[in-house]
Simulated assay, not measured.
Amino acid sequence: MDYSEGKLYGENIIYTNSTQYQRIVLTHNKSDYRLYLNNNLQFSSADEYRYHEALVHPAMSIAKNVKHVLVLGGGDGLAVREILKYKEVQKITLVDLDQGMTKLFKTNKVLTDFNKGALNNPKVTVINTDAYIWAKSCKEKFDVVIIDFPDPSNYSLGKLYSLNFYQTIKAILETDAAVVIQTTSPYFAPKSFWCINKTVMQVFSQVDAYHAYVPSFGEWGYTIAINGFGTTFNTINRKAPGLKFYNYQFDRFNYFTTDMISNEIEINRLDNQILVRYFDEEWGKLQ
Rank of each mutant, 00 (worst) to 15 (best):
183 T>E: 05
232 T>W: 07
249 Q>D: 08
205 S>T: 10
140 E>P: 03
56 V>A: 02
27 T>Q: 08
57 H>I: 03
204 F>V: 07
61 S>D: 00
159 K>A: 05
141 K>L: 08
7 K>D: 06
250 F>S: 01
202 Q>N: 04
65 N>K: 11
21 Y>V: 04
277 R>A: 07
120 N>K: 11
209 A>V: 04
283 W>I: 14
161 Y>P: 07
85 K>I: 00
18 S>E: 14
39 N>V: 08
66 V>L: 01
173 L>M: 10
269 R>F: 09
241 P>D: 03
250 F>G: 01
225 A>Q: 06
189 A>K: 15
80 V>T: 07
33 Y>A: 02
154 N>C: 15
58 P>M: 05
230 G>Y: 12
45 S>R: 04
220 W>I: 14
201 M>I: 04
149 F>C: 03
100 G>E: 06
79 A>Q: 09
38 N>K: 03
84 L>I: 08
14 I>N: 12
211 H>I: 13
188 F>M: 14
244 K>H: 11
82 E>P: 12
73 G>S: 09
94 L>D: 00
270 L>S: 01
176 D>L: 12
279 F>P: 00
182 Q>H: 15
60 M>A: 02
117 G>I: 04
47 D>R: 06
147 I>R: 10
100 G>Q: 08
85 K>R: 15
128 N>A: 12
99 Q>A: 14
189 A>L: 14
45 S>C: 05
123 K>D: 10
90 Q>L: 10
80 V>W: 06
23 R>G: 04
18 S>L: 13
272 N>G: 10
273 Q>N: 13
230 G>K: 15
2 D>G: 12
133 I>M: 13
1 M>H: 11
252 R>P: 00
2 D>N: 14
65 N>I: 03
9 Y>T: 00
54 A>H: 10
113 D>N: 09
122 P>C: 03
278 Y>L: 08
143 D>P: 04
252 R>D: 12
73 G>C: 08
280 D>W: 15
157 L>N: 07
205 S>D: 12
247 N>Y: 07
280 D>V: 12
83 I>R: 01
234 N>V: 00
245 F>H: 15
239 K>D: 00
244 K>N: 09
115 N>A: 04
78 L>S: 08
225 A>M: 07
194 W>S: 05
222 Y>S: 07
77 G>L: 06
188 F>D: 13
82 E>Y: 14
135 A>T: 11
